[in-house]
Design a protein around this nucleic acid. Sequence first.
RNA 1: GCCGACGUAGCUCAGCUGGUAGAGCAGCUGAUUCGUAAUCAGCAGGUCACGAGUUCGAAUCUCGUCGUCGGCUCCA
Length: 611
Amino acid sequence: MAEEVSRKTPEQRAGMSDLERLRHSCAHVLATAILKLWPEAQFAAGPPVEAGFYYDLELGRRISPEDFEQIEAEMKKTVKENQTFERVPVSRDEALKLAEEGRLAALGPRGEPSKFKLDILRGIPEGEEITLYRNGDFLDLCAGPHVMRTGNIGAFKLTSVASAYYKGDERNPQLQRVYGTAFKTRAELDAHFAMLEEAKKRDHRKLGKELELFFFDAEDVGPGLPLWLPNGTVLIEELEKLAKETEFRGGYQRVRTPHLARESLYITSGHLPYYKESMFPPMEFSEDAAGDPVKYYLKAMNCPHHHKLFGAVPRSYRDLPLRLAEYGTCYRYEQSGELFGLMRVRSMQMNDAHIYCTREQFEAEFNAVNELYLKYFKIFGLDKYLMRFSTHDPARLGEKFVDEPELWRETEEMVRNVLVKSGIAFVEIPNEAAFYGPNIDVQVWSAIGREFTIATNQVDFSVPKRFGLKYKTSDGGFDTPLCIHRAPLGTHERFIGFLIEHFAGAFPVWLAPEQVRVLPISEKHAAYARQVTAALRKEEIRATCDESPDKIGAKIRLAQIEKVSYMLVLGAREEAADLVAVRSRKLGDEGALSAGEFLARLKREIANREL
RNA sequence: GCCGACGUAGCUCAGCUGGUAGAGCAGCUGAUUCGUAAUCAGCAGGUCACGAGUUCGAAUCUCGUCGUCGGCUCCA
C-alpha cells in the first residue's frame, strides 16, 4: 500500500535487499510478457511486496489464472535471453515526451500515451533524478534498483490476479493486479510453496471446523456473526478468567452495559455521523404517547457507555485513576468483502477498559497498560509482533486531529517515553492517530500472512470533554480527565482466531477445551475409568471418558487428532495398582503415576498457565 | 461496497464435451473386549446454495440473488 501512495526514499531504495531487487525485476519481466501478448496494456506500479511482487495494469480483457501458463512461458523466454537491466537517467522533458508517445512501460512506440506513468512522472518532485530501466525492448519509468540481468531471476511463479484501485484510492480507476513470487533458486521457490501448504493447515477457519470451536450460518444467522460451539466457549471463558484476574490485580473494576443505546448517545460521542458507515442501521420506532420516533443503535464501541458510568457519580481526584473494565459485545457493520473468518466479524466481544486519570497519572497508567501487554504476550509465547505508534500531523490540527497542539505534544511525548524506557521495539507512524489522541496498535500476522491489529491502546483527550466529564480537583475546582482506551486481548473473535493459528490448534493445557481423556483398554475397565474421570471432574478438570468399543490405538489416534492435552490409558495393570498411565499429546507415553500425582502436576501446569 | 474465482452428504472431494448423483472419513446398528495414531460388517445421509431461463432433458449452459474465498478501500 505504502509502495504506491508514498514514493520510496532514495535511502530505502538503496537498502532494498537482493531478494526485493530480484522480485522487482521479475515484475518488469512480467510486464514484458504481458505486453508481448497484449501490447495495449497500460501499467501503473509494480513493486516487490512481502511474499513476492505485483504489477498493476489496465487492459480491456480480463486476465485470469488460466492465462498464467501463457504469460509465464513468455516470461521464461525473457529470463532465458538473459537481458541486461540498463539504467537510463533522463531529463524530465525527455521522460515526459516518452510517456506522451506511450513508450514507457511498453515495448516500443504506441498510439496512446502511457497514462499512469505520465501521472506518476508528474508526481515526482522537481530536482529528483528521473531514471528509466530497459531490458530488451521493454522500457519503464523506474527508480530501480534491479538485478544485473534477467537471467538472475532463478525461479518465479504467478500466484493470483486481483483488482486494486490506482494509487489505492477508491475514486480512481480499478486496475488488475497480477501477483507473483520469485526466488534465486527453484529449491527456494518450492520451499516457499511447501511453507504455504503448511500454513494452510493452521488456518483458523479450517481448524475451527475440525476442532468444533465455532461456526457460521450465513443464511439464517448472518454473515460475520460467529456462533461458539462448546469447545470454543471454553477458550473464551479461560481468556475472560485470565483478564478478570489480571485486571482485578491491576485495580480495575468491572462494569456491564447494554448492547444498544439511543441515537443521542452517539451524537454526543461523535460516532454519528463519522462512524455511521460501520454501524448497523438503527432500529426505529415510537416509544412515547406522542408517537415521536426514536432510534436505537447497536453499540460499535463501549466507550460512550463507560463515559456515562464515569459521569453517573460525582467524581473527585481521589477517585482517579478510575479503571472501568468490561468484556463488552460490540457490533460493526463491516463491508461484506471485509469479512474473514474470526479475524474480521460483525459481532465481537472486546477486552475493553477505560482508564480515567489526571495528566500527572497518565504516564504511570500508560506504562502499566504497556506492561500488561507484555505480560500477556509472554503467557501466550507471542514473539512475532510489531508495536505501531500512531501520532498526529501538526499540519492537520483542527481537521483530521482535534485542535489541542499542547495535549498532542504532551501525550505523544509521554507515550514515546514509555515505549523507549520499556525497550520495546516500535515504529512511529505520523498522521495515523485517531482524531482524539495518539495510539499504539500491536500488529500480528495470520497463518496465511495477512496482517492484523490484535490489540490496541489509545489515548483520548477529546471525547471525555464532549461528555462533560469532570472531577473535583484538590484545590476545589473541576478538571476533565484524560482517558486511556485499552484492549490488550483485543476481541475474543480475533484473539482466538490468532491463538488457533499460533498454537496450530494444540492449545496449552490451561486453554485446552479437553484437558484429559480417559481411555479404558476394554469394557472391563470402564468402571475404573469412570471413577478416575469423575475424580478429575470433581477438581474442575475438563476430562471425558472414551467408552467406545474401539481398540486402544484407535482411541489414542482420535484423541491425538482432537488435540486433547493428556490421555490416561487404563487397563488391568493400572486398575490393580491404582495408577494411571499418562500419555501427553506432546511427548507420548510418559509412564504410570498415581491419580493423585497426575492431578497435582496437572493443576500446577494449569495454575501457572504453562505453555 | 468494488474486481475476480468458487458454491455437490456433517467434513474432504469425484462426477469428461447436458441424459435426472458417487467415494473416503464422520454418524447410526450389530459383531469384536483388544496395551499407546485407524477391528470388521451392514444401514442411513443430498430440491447438487437459492430463483428464473435455454432445452425433449440441467449438478453440468445463460442470467439474477445470496454466501464463501483471493485482493482493493477500511478496521479489533
